[in-house]
Every structure is written in structure tokens, then in C-alpha cells.
Design a protein around this nucleic acid. Sequence first.
DNA 1: CGCCCGGGTGTACGAGCGTACACATCCCGC
DNA 2: GCGGGATGTGTACGCTCGTACACCCGGGCG
Lengths: 187, 187
Amino acid sequence: MPDDAPRARRHDPQRRDRIIDACLDVVVAHGVAGTSHRKVAAAAGVPLGSMTYHFAGMDELLREAFTRFATAASDQFERRLGAARDAAEAKAAVVALITGDVLTTRRDLVLTSELYTLAAREPAFRDLTNRWMARSRAALERHFDPVTARMLDALIEGLTLHRALDTEPHDAATAAEAVERITRPAG
Amino acid sequence: MPDDAPRARRHDPQRRDRIIDACLDVVVAHGVAGTSHRKVAAAAGVPLGSMTYHFAGMDELLREAFTRFATAASDQFERRLGAARDAAEAKAAVVALITGDVLTTRRDLVLTSELYTLAAREPAFRDLTNRWMARSRAALERHFDPVTARMLDALIEGLTLHRALDTEPHDAATAAEAVERITRPAG
DNA sequence: CGCCCGGGTGTACGAGCGTACACATCCCGC
DNA sequence: GCGGGATGTGTACGCTCGTACACCCGGGCG
């Protein structure tokens, strides 16, 4: 019994996880439009039959994949904001999130867009984005009042999106100024 | 020679336009993922062969379709802002755009999302969104300084998106307050 | 009036897709 | 140690897709 590479395939508990991760990779590379059972299977290194065995269909697979993505993004967001000790640090953390390289990679931009596109059409994915937004707002509400939190959340969304899509670079000072303004109640 | 309905097909100059409009309808109904030459042809009431005759491929068709959509949206935006006579009216116009039913229909949400998804991956579509954003910013700069215009543009984006995706309704007052804050320079 | 030419169309082909299902393989209880 | 049930896989089918290409037909010129 030589220890070939493709051994111990049976009862591989990571199999399902690997498929989900591979699914996100395929979505980044080819878009939801170009994502198929075959491509994901190839990317994950599993046989085609495993797809239908582990998932009822592409919809279920996509739902789990984007759940994982949204959860990871929320975790990052909460961690960054949780580390802030006062409003000033919270604002700095928000600016860092907008201008930094955490949520602003090409991969994150693509996945977020694809998720919103799905959410725009299918309620199941809309629930996902709603939970994501709710967690963001809750994290912001640890430092700001609910109304400000909601505005700030929207501002973060818009600035991140525009910064990511724009070809010419934005400077961080504009983002900082915007955060400063939105968190300052009108007289 | 009875004047049947399917007459005068030859040399129909509106044919191309009808295909583009039908393409947008199909995208709304099935997403870019589910848009095919066959579905668009059926929706437009033209033979399948017309697709490859008028367009080099799906990419060209989608590019023209989304160009039309983005141009129409920009026109709306400019018209609304152009009618404002001072900064106060401009702010009111912005709030109306965010909370109104012009850019916030399901159709617009879906098309915008799909466009951003394409832009996130393909430079050709990114140019499209960049021109759209540039026109919006230019329209805003008629009433606000460039930095404020950029912030406001991002805020509009975020608020519109969050309002459209959120299941529970937002009140217009929050949008108005956010616009008020973002247009008020920090001391 | 008739020919011809080019714009427009119907069809057929090969590729890629999701899914069903017969079958191989392994593990556990006896 | 061996039979049988559960777990996982390979394959084949039916479908939709984009595209190429042979053909149709109406209008313009000789």
C-alpha cells in the first residue's frame, strides 16, 4: 500500500469546506454567471459527483459560500471596531477600513458585488446582506447613536465602492473628512 | 397585399434598439448570468440570427445595453440637479433622488448591481461606471465644492443601496439629515 | 423586365451544463 | 472474516448555449 497522494479521500470532513472555498475562488475568477459544478469540482479537486452529493444545487452552494464570505467580512469589521476605545479611535478604525487593504481588495469587491446582485433578485441572499448590515450597524452603535450608525454604514458602503471602482486614486483625507462630517450632528 | 403585422421587417432601423431594450428586460428578469442570445431574441421578437448579425457577441450587446441604462440614469440625475437654483434646492433634490421612486425601483437596483458586478471584473464596464460617476460629480459640483461633491456622491450611492436592499423601511428624515451633515464642512 | 447582389434568416453542430443513477468501496457488527 | 448497509463516485443523458454558414428574397441597375 504505497502512500499515494490521493489517499484517505473517504470520510474527509474538510471536503465540504474545501468545495465552499473553491466555489468562492471560482466566483472571483469567472463570476456567478460562469460558475458551474464542474469548475468548482475541478478547483476543489473533487469528483463531479461530490457536488450533488454535498449540495442540493448551485443555489445552496452559493448561499453557503456567500454566507462564509459575509461572516468573515463582518468578523473583520467587528474586530476592528471592537478594538477602538472611544469615538475618535472608532472613527480612525472606520477610515482605516475604507482606505485600507482589508475590504478593498479586488477579490472583496468582486464578491461583494456579486452578492448584492444576487440579493437584488433573491430573498434568500437579501437576508444574508441584511444580517451583514445589521451586524455592521450594531458594531457602529457601540460608539455612535443609531441614526449616526446607519448614516455611517451607508457612507462606508458608498466610499468603499467608489474608491474600489474608480480608476484614479482617492486620497485618505477625503474619507477622513467625510467620516468627521457624518458623525457631527447638525446644529 | 394585406398589411399584416409582421410586415416591413426588412431594413427595420429600430431593430437594433429593440434588441438592446429587450436585453435590459432579460437582464432584469434573469440576471446577466441567465441572459442568452436566444432569450433576448425571443423577448425582442427577432430571429436568433439577428443577434450575431447586429452584435459581435453578448459582451458587445451588454455593453451597449448598460451604456443606455447608465446614460438614462445620468440624464435623470442631471435634470433633477440642474433644476435646483441654490444649494438648498440641490440638497432637497438629492434627498428626493435617494428617497424617491426614480432610481430606487427594483429594476434600477438590479441593473445597477449587475453593472457594478461587470465593472468589478471587466475594464470596459468600469469605464462605463467611471463616466457615470464623473457625470454625477460634475452635476453636484454646480452646487458644491469638488471634495463635498465626491463625498455626497458616495453617500448617495451608499444610502440608495442600503435603502433598496434593506427590508425594513428607512425614513426620509435620516437621508435628509445625512445630506445636511455631509455638506456641512467641519469647523 | 429580368438579373444579380447583399442584407437578413433558419438551421445544424459541437461544447458545456446539471442531474440521475448504477455501481464501487469501505467500515462495522456479528 | 465476512456480509450488508452506508458512503461516495463515474458516466451517460437530455438540454441549452453561441456561432457558422448555406440559403432566401427584395430592391436597384442595366
